[in-house]
Amino acid sequence: MNPVAAGPVADVVSAVLMLSGALSCLLGAIGLVRLPDLPARLQAATKPQTLGLSLILLGTALRVEVATAVTLVLVVLFQVITAPVISQLVGRAAYRSGGFPDGTLVVDELAEHLPTDAVVGDEPAAERDGRD
């Protein structure tokens, strides 16, 4: 029942990992409040969260038994594999239902490429066509 690592060095490494993880989660939360539109908030909500959770779990993994640590690493792995898929699906759905406001994009090269019948939502098609 020995932890993965012990001693003062392990304590410091573990603490640094967990604190930077918490900082990353905090910055993600601030981004969620401060950023102007859905796609930007989606970045703040998914990516720093993944990094933060990974760091916290790695910091924890140093302090627990090997068998438990391996499971925590597995949690990190699945988080890293699944989080991008979620952000992709939400982003795509938001784009197609008019969740990307006009004012916050510098360019939108996808608008010209989407067939008009692919755009759904309450926004009239004509209005969408006029978007740049």
Binding site: I30, G31, P36, K47, L51, F100, E109
Partner: peptide
Amino acid sequence: DMVVSGAEVSWQVLRYGPAARGAVFE
């Protein structure tokens, strides 16, 4: 990249906040 881009996103959040901009490109 997760660390570096994470820092860049944090910079966008703290520096620009509601005035942050994005782009959709091919």
